[in-house]
Simulated assay, not measured.
Amino acid sequence: MIKKTLYFGNPAYLSLQNKQLVIKLPEVERNASLPECFKSQSVITRPIEDIGLVILDHKQITITSGALEALLENNCSVITCDNKSMPVGLLLPLYGNTVQNERFREQLTATLPLKKQLWQQTIKVKIQNQAHVLQYCSGEDNKCMRIWAEEVKSGDPDNLEARAAAYYWKTLYAHIPGFTRDRDGIPPNNLLNYGYAILRAIIARALVSSGLLPTLGIHHHNRYNAYCLADDIMEPYRPYVDKLVFQLVKTYGENIELTKEIKSVLLTIPTLDVVIGRKRSPLMIAATQTTASLYKCFSGELRKIAYPEM
């Protein structure tokens, strides 16, 4: 079952009662101009077990310890945002699988050749998916991207990922003068940052549910990054965000702002259609298939990660 994404961009009080997340909206309660029928809707409940992602995007949001505990116990990811409404923190459960200790050991003892092979698979699918996005957005088949995908070697020693990325961004937004993919760059970098943060939370949640450490990557190894493995595994999923952002830019223009309306579209990322092994499923479900297959690669049951192909 696809889990729900809850976004809070206004003052709210979140608590727990009878395994339900109780949502109180004080602005609605205090507004004397609203009719009583609207005020009666100022308290909403949602089953905790149905929630997969919560985004807290307002300084006047209060969440009780009990509600937070229940969300994490049910393997829900909780994202907090800064004063620019950009995701700045991610909370995940410490225990997401009944055989977590055993799976940690499998992950920790994975050999370097295995990690390099898994990274080769990851980058190959990422470049293939990027090629699909370019074809979809420009109507042209960029053969160089498909060639680079086939030429990726174990561990990607030739850094074809970077070569493909440089070409990809230059081609995708050729119509926007001066555009480069940079976290602090011009739009639509703001939308990409937001979308990737949501995607990262989804992948990290799936890794925890599969009993894996999101910190220990197969390629990324920044000592200050608590989600190296999530950053590795999300790579082939990034083009799904890229495609959605491109569609938004096409609709709203080059100088697109990260408004609530735009955020509401980006919050559909967990429900985007994804195909793995010719089977279609929402992205959030597909992520758990991917992380489950990753564990089986660590344990020796599989040799290939189940990644989505566009």
Rank of each mutant, 00 (worst) to 15 (best):
M1R: 12
K4S: 12
K4I: 03
L6G: 08
Y7D: 09
Y13C: 09
L14S: 06
Q17I: 05
Q20E: 13
P26K: 03
E29G: 02
R30G: 00
R30D: 08
E36F: 14
K39Q: 11
K39N: 11
S40V: 12
S42R: 13
I44C: 02
G52Q: 04
G52P: 10
L53H: 14
V54D: 06
L56S: 10
D57L: 09
H58G: 07
I63M: 15
L71G: 02
L71W: 08
L72V: 10
N74H: 15
N75A: 13
C76V: 12
C81P: 09
K84R: 14
L91M: 14
L91H: 02
L92R: 08
L94Q: 14
L94V: 11
Y95C: 01
Y95W: 09
G96M: 09
R105W: 14
E106C: 14
E106K: 14
Q107P: 06
T111E: 11
T111A: 07
K115S: 10
K116L: 06
K116P: 02
Q117T: 06
Q117K: 10
Q120H: 07
T122W: 05
K126E: 05
I127A: 05
I127M: 09
Q128K: 12
A131H: 06
L134P: 03
Y136P: 00
C137V: 14
S138Y: 01
G139I: 12
G139L: 13
E140N: 03
N142A: 02
N142H: 15
K143M: 06
M145P: 03
I147H: 13
V152H: 12
K153G: 03
G155V: 14
G155A: 08
A164P: 03
A164W: 06
A165P: 01
Y168I: 12
W169E: 01
L172P: 00
Y173P: 04
I176N: 08
R181P: 08
D182G: 01
D184T: 03
D184G: 10
P187W: 13
P188Y: 11
N190R: 09
L191G: 03
L192H: 03
Y196K: 04
Y196N: 07
I202V: 15
I202F: 01
A206R: 07
L207T: 11
G211K: 01
I218G: 07
H220I: 00
H221G: 10
N222W: 03
R223E: 04
R223L: 02
C228R: 04
D231N: 11
D232N: 10
R238F: 00
Y240R: 02
D242R: 08
D242H: 07
K243I: 09
L248R: 05
K250V: 01
T251M: 03
Y252I: 00
E257H: 08
E257W: 00
E257Y: 01
I262R: 13
K263F: 04
K263I: 01
S264G: 02
L266R: 05
T271Q: 15
L272Q: 15
D273H: 13
V274P: 02
I276T: 07
G277D: 15
K279H: 06
R280Q: 15
R280K: 15
P282N: 13
I285V: 14
T288A: 13
Q289K: 12
T290R: 10
T290Q: 12
A292H: 10
L294A: 10
C297W: 06
F298Q: 06
I305V: 15
A306K: 15
M310S: 09
